[in-house]
Design a protein around this nucleic acid. Structure first.
Lengths: 222, 222
DNA sequence: ACTAACATACCAACCAGTTGGTATGTATCG
DNA sequence: CGATACATACCAACTGGTTGGTATGTTAGT
Protein backbone atom coordinates (compact mmCIF):
# COMPACT_ATOMS: atom_id res chain seq x y z
CA UNK A 1 0.00 0.00 0.00
CA UNK A 2 1.41 3.32 -1.02
CA UNK A 3 1.41 6.37 1.17
CA UNK A 4 -0.61 9.04 -0.53
CA UNK A 5 1.14 12.26 -1.38
CA UNK A 6 -1.40 15.04 -1.32
CA UNK A 7 0.83 17.99 -2.20
CA UNK A 8 1.72 18.05 -5.84
CA UNK A 9 3.10 20.77 -8.13
CA UNK A 10 3.49 17.90 -10.55
CA UNK A 11 6.10 18.73 -13.10
CA UNK A 12 8.75 16.13 -13.71
CA UNK A 13 7.73 14.15 -10.65
CA UNK A 14 10.51 11.63 -10.11
CA UNK A 15 13.33 13.67 -11.59
CA UNK A 16 12.46 16.71 -9.50
CA UNK A 17 12.07 14.64 -6.37
CA UNK A 18 15.52 13.14 -6.89
CA UNK A 19 17.05 16.56 -7.55
CA UNK A 20 15.39 18.09 -4.50
CA UNK A 21 16.50 15.16 -2.35
CA UNK A 22 20.03 15.45 -3.73
CA UNK A 23 20.36 19.05 -2.59
CA UNK A 24 19.69 18.21 1.04
CA UNK A 25 21.25 14.76 1.27
CA UNK A 26 24.52 15.69 -0.46
CA UNK A 27 24.78 18.86 1.61
CA UNK A 28 24.46 16.73 4.73
CA UNK A 29 26.53 13.66 3.92
CA UNK A 30 28.72 14.86 1.08
CA UNK A 31 28.77 13.63 -2.51
CA UNK A 32 30.98 10.54 -2.15
CA UNK A 33 29.27 9.33 1.03
CA UNK A 34 25.84 9.65 -0.59
CA UNK A 35 24.84 6.47 -2.40
CA UNK A 36 22.35 6.26 -5.21
CA UNK A 37 20.15 4.21 -2.86
CA UNK A 38 20.30 7.02 -0.29
CA UNK A 39 19.05 9.40 -2.94
CA UNK A 40 16.27 7.06 -4.06
CA UNK A 41 15.10 6.44 -0.50
CA UNK A 42 15.11 10.15 0.31
CA UNK A 43 13.25 10.95 -2.89
CA UNK A 44 10.82 8.06 -2.47
CA UNK A 45 11.57 6.56 -5.88
CA UNK A 46 13.20 3.36 -7.07
CA UNK A 47 16.58 2.88 -8.64
CA UNK A 48 14.98 2.22 -11.98
CA UNK A 49 13.55 5.71 -11.93
CA UNK A 50 16.92 7.15 -10.99
CA UNK A 51 18.78 5.57 -13.89
CA UNK A 52 15.95 6.39 -16.23
CA UNK A 53 16.52 10.10 -15.63
CA UNK A 54 20.28 10.11 -15.01
CA UNK A 55 22.86 8.08 -16.90
CA UNK A 56 25.09 7.79 -13.87
CA UNK A 57 25.74 9.12 -10.40
CA UNK A 58 28.12 11.61 -11.99
CA UNK A 59 25.35 12.87 -14.29
CA UNK A 60 23.17 13.39 -11.22
CA UNK A 61 25.98 15.39 -9.64
CA UNK A 62 26.20 17.68 -12.66
CA UNK A 63 22.41 18.06 -12.80
CA UNK A 64 22.32 18.80 -9.06
CA UNK A 65 24.91 21.56 -9.49
CA UNK A 66 22.82 23.11 -12.26
CA UNK A 67 19.62 22.73 -10.25
CA UNK A 68 21.35 24.41 -7.30
CA UNK A 69 22.48 27.22 -9.56
CA UNK A 70 18.92 27.79 -10.76
CA UNK A 71 17.21 27.69 -7.38
CA UNK A 72 19.78 29.94 -5.71
CA UNK A 73 19.61 32.37 -8.62
CA UNK A 74 15.90 32.80 -7.99
CA UNK A 75 16.43 32.99 -4.23
CA UNK A 76 19.00 35.78 -4.49
CA UNK A 77 17.19 37.61 -7.25
CA UNK A 78 14.17 37.90 -4.97
CA UNK A 79 16.22 38.85 -1.89
CA UNK A 80 15.66 42.34 -0.45
CA UNK A 81 19.24 43.61 -0.72
CA UNK A 82 18.68 44.86 -4.26
CA UNK A 83 16.37 47.64 -3.12
CA UNK A 84 19.06 50.14 -2.09
CA UNK A 85 19.65 53.03 -4.45
CA UNK A 86 23.41 53.22 -3.94
CA UNK A 87 25.49 50.41 -5.56
CA UNK A 88 27.87 50.18 -2.60
CA UNK A 89 24.92 49.92 -0.24
CA UNK A 90 23.61 47.03 -2.32
CA UNK A 91 26.93 45.22 -2.02
CA UNK A 92 27.07 45.78 1.73
CA UNK A 93 23.44 44.73 2.07
CA UNK A 94 24.27 41.56 0.13
CA UNK A 95 27.06 40.71 2.56
CA UNK A 96 24.78 41.46 5.51
CA UNK A 97 22.13 39.22 3.94
CA UNK A 98 24.62 36.39 3.53
CA UNK A 99 25.65 36.74 7.16
CA UNK A 100 22.06 36.79 8.39
CA UNK A 101 21.15 33.54 6.64
CA UNK A 102 24.08 31.78 8.36
CA UNK A 103 21.90 30.24 11.05
CA UNK A 104 20.13 27.06 12.06
CA UNK A 105 21.35 23.66 10.94
CA UNK A 106 24.53 23.45 8.87
CA UNK A 107 22.83 21.71 5.97
CA UNK A 108 20.39 24.61 5.73
CA UNK A 109 22.85 27.40 4.95
CA UNK A 110 25.77 25.48 3.51
CA UNK A 111 26.70 25.53 -0.19
CA UNK A 112 26.07 22.43 -2.31
CA UNK A 113 28.50 23.31 -5.06
CA UNK A 114 31.30 24.24 -2.67
CA UNK A 115 30.93 20.87 -1.01
CA UNK A 116 30.85 18.98 -4.29
CA UNK A 117 33.73 20.92 -5.84
CA UNK A 118 35.99 19.90 -3.01
CA UNK A 119 35.12 16.24 -3.23
CA UNK A 120 35.13 15.83 -6.99
CA UNK A 121 37.86 18.15 -8.25
CA UNK A 122 40.21 15.21 -8.86
CA UNK A 123 37.74 12.41 -9.44
CA UNK A 124 35.25 14.16 -11.72
CA UNK A 125 36.24 17.32 -13.52
CA UNK A 126 32.78 17.47 -15.11
CA UNK A 127 31.09 17.93 -11.72
CA UNK A 128 33.77 20.34 -10.51
CA UNK A 129 33.30 22.40 -13.67
CA UNK A 130 29.56 22.58 -13.08
CA UNK A 131 30.23 23.69 -9.50
CA UNK A 132 32.69 26.30 -10.69
CA UNK A 133 30.11 27.63 -13.15
CA UNK A 134 27.58 27.98 -10.31
CA UNK A 135 30.00 29.80 -8.02
CA UNK A 136 31.43 32.05 -10.71
CA UNK A 137 27.97 32.76 -12.07
CA UNK A 138 26.73 33.86 -8.68
CA UNK A 139 29.83 36.01 -8.10
CA UNK A 140 29.18 37.68 -11.45
CA UNK A 141 25.83 38.99 -10.19
CA UNK A 142 27.87 41.28 -7.91
CA UNK A 143 30.18 42.60 -10.61
CA UNK A 144 27.94 45.39 -11.85
CA UNK A 145 27.26 46.85 -8.40
CA UNK A 146 30.91 46.70 -7.34
CA UNK A 147 32.00 48.26 -10.64
CA UNK A 148 29.41 51.04 -10.25
CA UNK A 149 30.56 51.72 -6.70
CA UNK A 150 34.12 51.94 -7.93
CA UNK A 151 33.23 54.35 -10.71
CA UNK A 152 31.33 56.52 -8.21
CA UNK A 153 34.62 57.01 -6.41
CA UNK A 154 36.74 57.50 -9.49
CA UNK A 155 38.23 54.02 -9.36
CA UNK A 156 38.77 51.93 -12.46
CA UNK A 157 36.75 48.67 -12.24
CA UNK A 158 39.48 46.71 -14.01
CA UNK A 159 41.83 47.54 -11.18
CA UNK A 160 44.47 49.46 -13.11
CA UNK A 161 45.06 51.97 -10.31
CA UNK A 162 44.01 50.11 -7.19
CA UNK A 163 45.47 46.68 -7.86
CA UNK A 164 42.08 45.02 -7.44
CA UNK A 165 39.25 44.64 -9.93
CA UNK A 166 35.49 44.49 -9.44
CA UNK A 167 35.53 40.87 -10.58
CA UNK A 168 38.26 39.85 -8.14
CA UNK A 169 36.42 41.47 -5.22
CA UNK A 170 33.22 39.72 -6.24
CA UNK A 171 35.05 36.40 -6.28
CA UNK A 172 36.66 37.24 -2.95
CA UNK A 173 33.23 37.51 -1.32
CA UNK A 174 32.58 33.94 -2.42
CA UNK A 175 35.97 32.82 -1.15
CA UNK A 176 35.18 34.20 2.29
CA UNK A 177 31.74 32.60 2.27
CA UNK A 178 33.08 29.21 1.19
CA UNK A 179 35.74 29.45 3.87
CA UNK A 180 33.09 30.41 6.41
CA UNK A 181 31.18 27.22 5.54
CA UNK A 182 34.29 25.10 6.15
CA UNK A 183 34.98 26.75 9.50
CA UNK A 184 31.33 26.38 10.46
CA UNK A 185 31.47 22.67 9.62
CA UNK A 186 34.68 22.21 11.58
CA UNK A 187 33.23 24.05 14.56
CA UNK A 188 29.81 22.49 14.31
CA UNK A 189 28.03 25.84 14.19
CA UNK A 190 27.91 29.20 12.40
CA UNK A 191 29.18 31.45 15.22
CA UNK A 192 32.75 31.97 13.95
CA UNK A 193 31.52 32.13 10.37
CA UNK A 194 29.53 35.24 11.32
CA UNK A 195 32.72 36.97 12.46
CA UNK A 196 34.44 36.28 9.17
CA UNK A 197 31.58 37.67 7.12
CA UNK A 198 31.72 40.74 9.36
CA UNK A 199 35.42 41.06 8.53
CA UNK A 200 34.47 40.89 4.85
CA UNK A 201 31.93 43.69 5.28
CA UNK A 202 34.53 45.79 7.11
CA UNK A 203 37.01 45.18 4.30
CA UNK A 204 34.59 46.40 1.66
CA UNK A 205 33.78 49.47 3.75
CA UNK A 206 37.48 50.24 4.20
CA UNK A 207 38.13 49.77 0.49
CA UNK A 208 35.51 52.33 -0.44
CA UNK A 209 36.08 54.63 2.53
CA UNK A 210 39.51 55.66 1.32
CA UNK A 211 37.99 58.08 -1.20
CA UNK A 212 34.71 59.94 -0.70
CA UNK A 213 32.27 60.65 -3.48
CA UNK A 214 32.68 63.59 -5.85
CA UNK A 215 35.15 65.65 -3.80
CA UNK A 216 38.79 64.80 -4.18
CA UNK A 217 39.49 66.05 -0.65
CA UNK A 218 40.09 63.42 2.00
CA UNK A 219 37.36 63.22 4.55
CA UNK A 220 37.13 59.83 6.27
CA UNK A 221 33.68 59.21 7.77
CA UNK A 222 33.70 58.84 11.52
CA UNK B 1 63.65 0.28 30.45
CA UNK B 2 61.76 2.14 27.84
CA UNK B 3 61.59 5.87 27.53
CA UNK B 4 58.22 7.55 27.37
CA UNK B 5 59.01 8.40 23.76
CA UNK B 6 58.16 5.30 21.73
CA UNK B 7 58.68 7.00 18.37
CA UNK B 8 61.66 5.34 16.79
CA UNK B 9 62.39 4.12 13.29
CA UNK B 10 61.48 0.53 14.03
CA UNK B 11 58.16 1.07 15.81
CA UNK B 12 56.95 3.63 13.31
CA UNK B 13 57.37 1.68 10.11
CA UNK B 14 53.91 0.58 8.97
CA UNK B 15 51.95 3.10 11.01
CA UNK B 16 54.03 6.00 9.69
CA UNK B 17 53.80 4.76 6.13
CA UNK B 18 50.00 4.61 6.40
CA UNK B 19 49.82 8.08 7.94
CA UNK B 20 52.10 9.57 5.29
CA UNK B 21 50.09 7.91 2.55
CA UNK B 22 46.85 9.14 4.11
CA UNK B 23 47.94 12.78 3.90
CA UNK B 24 48.44 12.66 0.15
CA UNK B 25 45.71 10.22 -0.86
CA UNK B 26 42.94 11.86 1.19
CA UNK B 27 43.98 15.31 -0.02
CA UNK B 28 43.64 14.04 -3.57
CA UNK B 29 40.54 11.86 -3.44
CA UNK B 30 38.82 13.06 -0.29
CA UNK B 31 38.14 11.08 2.88
CA UNK B 32 34.96 9.26 1.90
CA UNK B 33 36.24 8.30 -1.55
CA UNK B 34 39.44 6.90 -0.11
CA UNK B 35 39.11 3.24 0.81
CA UNK B 36 41.22 1.42 3.38
CA UNK B 37 42.60 -0.65 0.51
CA UNK B 38 43.64 2.54 -1.28
CA UNK B 39 45.59 3.57 1.79
CA UNK B 40 47.20 0.15 2.17
CA UNK B 41 48.23 0.02 -1.48
CA UNK B 42 49.69 3.53 -1.32
CA UNK B 43 51.52 2.74 1.89
CA UNK B 44 52.68 -0.67 0.68
CA UNK B 45 51.23 -2.56 3.64
CA UNK B 46 48.46 -5.09 4.08
CA UNK B 47 45.05 -4.57 5.55
CA UNK B 48 46.01 -6.61 8.57
CA UNK B 49 48.71 -4.06 9.38
CA UNK B 50 46.20 -1.24 8.95
CA UNK B 51 43.72 -2.64 11.44
CA UNK B 52 46.50 -3.59 13.80
CA UNK B 53 47.45 0.07 14.14
CA UNK B 54 44.02 1.67 13.73
CA UNK B 55 40.77 0.39 15.17
CA UNK B 56 38.74 1.70 12.26
CA UNK B 57 38.84 3.98 9.26
CA UNK B 58 37.51 6.71 11.53
CA UNK B 59 40.41 6.21 13.94
CA UNK B 60 42.79 6.64 11.00
CA UNK B 61 41.01 9.87 10.10
CA UNK B 62 41.52 11.24 13.60
CA UNK B 63 45.15 10.12 13.64
CA UNK B 64 45.71 11.68 10.22
CA UNK B 65 44.33 15.02 11.43
CA UNK B 66 46.70 14.95 14.40
CA UNK B 67 49.61 13.91 12.20
CA UNK B 68 48.78 16.78 9.85
CA UNK B 69 48.67 19.16 12.77
CA UNK B 70 52.11 18.06 13.92
CA UNK B 71 53.82 18.17 10.54
CA UNK B 72 52.36 21.55 9.59
CA UNK B 73 53.26 22.96 13.01
CA UNK B 74 56.91 22.14 12.33
CA UNK B 75 56.66 23.44 8.77
CA UNK B 76 55.30 26.84 9.81
CA UNK B 77 57.52 27.11 12.89
CA UNK B 78 60.53 26.83 10.58
CA UNK B 79 59.13 29.21 7.94
CA UNK B 80 61.00 32.48 7.37
CA UNK B 81 58.13 34.87 8.11
CA UNK B 82 58.95 34.94 11.84
CA UNK B 83 62.17 36.84 11.27
CA UNK B 84 60.64 40.32 11.01
CA UNK B 85 61.04 42.56 14.04
CA UNK B 86 57.64 44.26 13.76
CA UNK B 87 54.59 42.11 14.76
CA UNK B 88 52.42 43.52 11.94
CA UNK B 89 55.20 42.78 9.46
CA UNK B 90 55.25 39.20 10.71
CA UNK B 91 51.52 38.86 10.13
CA UNK B 92 51.77 40.34 6.64
CA UNK B 93 54.78 38.13 5.89
CA UNK B 94 52.75 35.11 7.02
CA UNK B 95 49.98 35.99 4.59
CA UNK B 96 52.51 36.55 1.81
CA UNK B 97 54.06 33.19 2.66
CA UNK B 98 50.68 31.47 2.48
CA UNK B 99 50.03 33.05 -0.91
CA UNK B 100 53.44 32.07 -2.26
CA UNK B 101 53.01 28.39 -1.40
CA UNK B 102 49.74 28.31 -3.37
CA UNK B 103 51.31 26.79 -6.46
CA UNK B 104 51.83 23.52 -8.29
CA UNK B 105 49.41 20.64 -8.00
CA UNK B 106 46.27 21.13 -5.90
CA UNK B 107 47.06 18.20 -3.59
CA UNK B 108 50.38 19.84 -2.77
CA UNK B 109 49.10 23.06 -1.22
CA UNK B 110 45.60 22.08 -0.13
CA UNK B 111 44.58 21.55 3.49
CA UNK B 112 43.90 18.01 4.73
CA UNK B 113 41.85 19.03 7.75
CA UNK B 114 39.71 21.49 5.80
CA UNK B 115 38.90 18.74 3.33
CA UNK B 116 38.10 16.21 6.03
CA UNK B 117 36.07 18.63 8.16
CA UNK B 118 33.74 19.26 5.26
CA UNK B 119 33.20 15.59 4.52
CA UNK B 120 32.86 14.32 8.07
CA UNK B 121 31.09 17.08 9.98
CA UNK B 122 27.82 15.16 9.97
CA UNK B 123 29.05 11.59 9.72
CA UNK B 124 31.88 11.68 12.25
CA UNK B 125 32.04 14.45 14.82
CA UNK B 126 35.24 12.89 16.23
CA UNK B 127 37.12 13.51 12.98
CA UNK B 128 35.60 16.96 12.55
CA UNK B 129 36.64 17.87 16.09
CA UNK B 130 40.21 16.77 15.40
CA UNK B 131 40.16 18.90 12.23
CA UNK B 132 38.81 21.86 14.14
CA UNK B 133 41.57 21.49 16.72
CA UNK B 134 44.17 21.56 13.95
CA UNK B 135 42.70 24.66 12.29
CA UNK B 136 42.07 26.55 15.53
CA UNK B 137 45.49 25.56 16.85
CA UNK B 138 47.20 26.95 13.77
CA UNK B 139 45.15 30.14 13.90
CA UNK B 140 46.20 30.58 17.52
CA UNK B 141 49.84 30.84 16.45
CA UNK B 142 48.92 34.20 14.89
CA UNK B 143 47.13 35.58 17.95
CA UNK B 144 50.19 36.96 19.74
CA UNK B 145 51.51 38.86 16.71
CA UNK B 146 48.12 40.34 15.85
CA UNK B 147 47.52 41.33 19.46
CA UNK B 148 50.95 42.97 19.65
CA UNK B 149 50.32 44.86 16.41
CA UNK B 150 47.02 46.09 17.83
CA UNK B 151 48.61 47.26 21.07
CA UNK B 152 51.31 49.09 19.06
CA UNK B 153 48.52 51.18 17.58
CA UNK B 154 46.58 51.66 20.78
CA UNK B 155 43.90 49.12 19.90
CA UNK B 156 42.50 46.69 22.43
CA UNK B 157 43.19 43.06 21.31
CA UNK B 158 39.86 41.86 22.70
CA UNK B 159 38.09 44.18 20.26
CA UNK B 160 36.27 46.40 22.72
CA UNK B 161 36.80 49.54 20.65
CA UNK B 162 37.22 48.27 17.11
CA UNK B 163 34.57 45.55 17.02
CA UNK B 164 37.12 42.91 16.04
CA UNK B 165 39.49 40.95 18.23
CA UNK B 166 42.95 39.54 17.52
CA UNK B 167 41.52 36.02 17.76
CA UNK B 168 38.73 36.72 15.27
CA UNK B 169 41.18 38.21 12.75
CA UNK B 170 43.46 35.19 13.16
CA UNK B 171 40.53 32.89 12.47
CA UNK B 172 39.50 35.07 9.53
CA UNK B 173 42.87 34.45 7.85
CA UNK B 174 42.10 30.72 8.03
CA UNK B 175 38.60 31.29 6.67
CA UNK B 176 40.01 33.08 3.63
CA UNK B 177 42.62 30.37 3.10
CA UNK B 178 40.07 27.57 3.38
CA UNK B 179 37.83 29.45 0.96
CA UNK B 180 40.76 29.93 -1.38
CA UNK B 181 41.31 26.16 -1.42
CA UNK B 182 37.69 25.57 -2.38
CA UNK B 183 37.81 28.12 -5.18
CA UNK B 184 41.12 26.68 -6.39
CA UNK B 185 39.58 23.20 -6.47
CA UNK B 186 36.52 24.47 -8.33
CA UNK B 187 38.70 26.32 -10.85
CA UNK B 188 41.27 23.58 -11.16
CA UNK B 189 44.14 25.89 -10.28
CA UNK B 190 45.40 28.42 -7.73
CA UNK B 191 45.20 31.60 -9.83
CA UNK B 192 42.01 33.06 -8.32
CA UNK B 193 43.04 31.87 -4.86
CA UNK B 194 46.07 34.15 -5.13
CA UNK B 195 43.81 37.16 -5.65
CA UNK B 196 41.79 36.37 -2.54
CA UNK B 197 44.86 36.06 -0.36
CA UNK B 198 45.98 39.41 -1.77
CA UNK B 199 42.62 40.84 -0.71
CA UNK B 200 43.24 39.45 2.76
CA UNK B 201 46.66 41.12 2.92
CA UNK B 202 45.11 44.41 1.76
CA UNK B 203 42.44 44.10 4.45
CA UNK B 204 45.01 43.65 7.21
CA UNK B 205 46.99 46.62 5.90
CA UNK B 206 43.86 48.79 5.81
CA UNK B 207 42.89 47.64 9.29
CA UNK B 208 46.19 48.77 10.75
CA UNK B 209 46.60 51.81 8.50
CA UNK B 210 43.69 53.68 10.06
CA UNK B 211 45.49 55.12 13.03
CA UNK B 212 43.95 57.60 15.44
CA UNK B 213 46.65 60.23 14.67
CA UNK B 214 46.46 59.49 10.93
CA UNK B 215 50.14 59.56 9.96
CA UNK B 216 49.96 57.86 6.61
CA UNK B 217 47.23 56.69 4.34
CA UNK B 218 48.23 53.75 2.23
CA UNK B 219 51.25 52.60 0.37
CA UNK B 220 51.75 50.28 -2.59
CA UNK B 221 52.78 46.72 -1.74
CA UNK B 222 56.52 46.30 -1.85
C1' DA C 1 0.68 0.39 -31.01
C1' DC C 2 4.21 3.15 -29.45
C1' DT C 3 6.80 5.58 -26.14
C1' DA C 4 8.11 7.79 -21.82
C1' DA C 5 8.07 6.89 -17.12
C1' DC C 6 8.51 4.26 -13.85
C1' DA C 7 9.26 -0.60 -10.89
C1' DT C 8 11.54 -5.21 -9.63
C1' DA C 9 15.15 -8.18 -9.47
C1' DC C 10 19.59 -8.89 -9.95
C1' DC C 11 24.91 -8.65 -10.58
C1' DA C 12 29.99 -8.19 -10.20
C1' DA C 13 33.05 -5.32 -7.94
C1' DC C 14 34.09 -3.29 -3.95
C1' DC C 15 33.59 -1.98 0.92
C1' DA C 16 35.15 -1.97 6.08
C1' DG C 17 36.33 -5.08 9.12
C1' DT C 18 37.67 -10.15 10.93
C1' DT C 19 39.98 -14.39 11.08
C1' DG C 20 43.72 -17.39 12.21
C1' DG C 21 48.18 -17.37 11.67
C1' DT C 22 53.63 -16.27 11.61
C1' DA C 23 57.82 -13.94 12.92
C1' DT C 24 60.21 -11.50 16.26
C1' DG C 25 60.79 -9.60 20.12
C1' DT C 26 61.45 -9.43 25.60
C1' DA C 27 60.55 -10.10 30.40
C1' DT C 28 60.53 -13.69 34.09
C1' DC C 29 61.96 -17.58 36.55
C1' DG C 30 64.36 -22.01 37.57
C1' DC D 1 71.85 -20.44 30.45
C1' DG D 2 67.51 -21.95 28.69
C1' DA D 3 62.73 -22.64 28.82
C1' DT D 4 58.18 -20.68 29.39
C1' DA D 5 55.10 -16.96 28.81
C1' DC D 6 53.41 -13.14 26.85
C1' DA D 7 53.47 -8.93 23.66
C1' DT D 8 54.01 -6.56 19.32
C1' DA D 9 53.99 -6.19 14.37
C1' DC D 10 52.52 -7.87 10.57
C1' DC D 11 50.20 -10.85 6.79
C1' DA D 12 46.90 -13.53 3.36
C1' DA D 13 42.51 -15.02 2.96
C1' DC D 14 37.97 -14.40 4.00
C1' DT D 15 33.05 -12.40 5.28
C1' DG D 16 28.71 -10.15 5.11
C1' DG D 17 26.98 -6.25 3.45
C1' DT D 18 26.94 -2.22 0.03
C1' DT D 19 28.10 -0.13 -4.25
C1' DG D 20 26.95 1.78 -9.01
C1' DG D 21 24.85 -0.05 -12.69
C1' DT D 22 21.85 -3.33 -15.73
C1' DA D 23 18.20 -6.38 -17.60
C1' DT D 24 13.66 -6.99 -17.87
C1' DG D 25 9.72 -5.95 -16.93
C1' DT D 26 4.84 -3.05 -16.16
C1' DT D 27 1.90 0.94 -16.49
C1' DA D 28 -0.12 5.21 -18.30
C1' DG D 29 -0.67 8.65 -21.78
C1' DT D 30 -1.15 9.62 -26.79
Amino acid sequence: MKTDEPQTARTGTARDKILTAALSVIRMKGYAATSVDDLCTAAGVTKGAFFHHFDSKEALGIAAAKHWSETTSIFFAEAPYHKHADPLERVLAYIRFRRDILQGELAEFTCLVGTMAQETHQTSRAIADACNAAISGHAATLDADIAAAMRDRGLNPDGSATGWSAASLALHTQTVLQGAFIIAKARGGPAVAHDSVDHLARYVRLLFASKPDRTRNERPPS
